[in-house]
């Protein structure tokens, strides 16, 4: 690969190896391998139907992959095989949080409550699985105070403090996107998966989102994997880009490398049938090692 020297030194937080996912006759992901590095913002891009969200669902335990191995390595060195875990364990134990392409907030709960639900497991423990909390033990009260502090921190980061007591469903679209990210961060993840966080945002909101993602990486040392269609966002903030097409990886490297990869250009812009040969030749000229 073109950037081997650069990436070899880095410490992979997530390793996807030979991942395949079959839906009946459709091979949504076909033998995909890539790595996301600790402290990086990794972008997963590709045309519609390339299998990006399927990869996400496999990583976060919502789908069981047909084949392959997904290894999450925590800061402390503990390793988890995500393909063997159920969806809630991926978050609770492996510390991988996610957001959704179509926003999934608890719209009838307030913004603050959304952030408290995200801290469920911690609070559950503090409340002695409800029993001590029901009896009014002070440990639970202290834990709630702590959780509210944490929620406040993320409300501030996501610029939602003014709307903390409003129902989540009442927020404008951009704020809902930010709240979903804040909620995912409240679970205390080491690895954050964002499914199209900039979809439907106006340029100003998009800018605010970039700011939020950068500060997440800087202040919490959380590594980020994001699916994105908005190339402005991808090129601006990501350190590492993986390009999918028809369930296979066609390019992998830093944004600059990917941007000029003819395979990526061909995948995105499309090529006429009679030009395929020509493009393959071009690719062979530019990156001889990449073709089979």
């Amino acid at each position: 690969m073109a950037l081997e020297t650069d990436t070899m030194t880095k410490d992979p937080i997530l390793k996807v190896e030979h991942l395949s996912m079959r839906f009946g006759g459709l091979m949504a992901i076909n033998d995909l391998s890539f790595e996301a590095y600790r402290g990086d913002i990794t972008a997963l891009i590709g045309p519609n139907g390339a299998g990006k969200t399927t990869v996400f669902n496999c990583i976060t335990g919502f789908y069981k992959p047909t084949m392959g191995m997904i290894t999450m390595r925590q800061k402390a060195g503990k390793e988890y095989l995500l393909e063997r875990m159920s969806d809630f364990e991926v978050n609770r134990d492996a510390k991988v949080a996610r957001t959704f392409q179509n926003i999934r907030l608890f719209s009838g709960l307030t913004v603050l409550e959304n952030l408290l639900v995200a801290q469920h497991n911690k609070l559950m423990l503090a409340s002695g699985y409800t029993i001590l909390g029901l009896l009014g033990f002070p440990t639970y009260k202290a834990a709630v105070g702590e959780s509210i502090e944490r929620a406040k921190y993320w409300l501030d980061k996501a610029n939602l403090t003014d709307r903390a007591d409003d129902p989540a469903g009442d927020l404008p679209y951009g704020a809902q996107r930010r709240l979903e990210i804040a909620r995912a961060m409240c679970t205390g993840p080491e690895f954050l998966c964002l499914d199209e966080p900039a979809a439907g945002l106006n340029p100003r909101e998009s800018l605010a989102l970039n700011e939020l993602l950068r500060s997440i990486r800087k202040d919490t040392e959380t590594s980020i994997l994001l699916i994105e269609h908005d190339m402005a966002v991808v090129m601006e903030i990501s350190d590492h880009v993986v390009v999918l097409e028809y369930g296979q990886k066609i390019s992998d490297g830093n944004p600059d490398f990917v941007k000029h990869d003819p395979k990526v250009i061909a995948a995105y812009l499309g090529v006429e049938d009679d030009e395929v040969e020509e493009v393959i030749e071009q690719i062979a000229e530019i990156a001889p090692g990449d073709t089979h």
Binding site: T60, F62, D87, F88, E89, V90, N91, R92, A97, R98, T99, F100, R104, L105, F106, S107, G108, L109, E113, V117, A118, H120, N121, R183, A184, T187
Partner: peptide
């Protein structure tokens, strides 16, 4: 209550 609002989101939060 979160479960009533969105079960999948609940699972994504552990």
């Amino acid at each position: 209550e979160a479960l009533r609002e969105d079960e999948i989101a609940c699972r994504s939060l552990g």
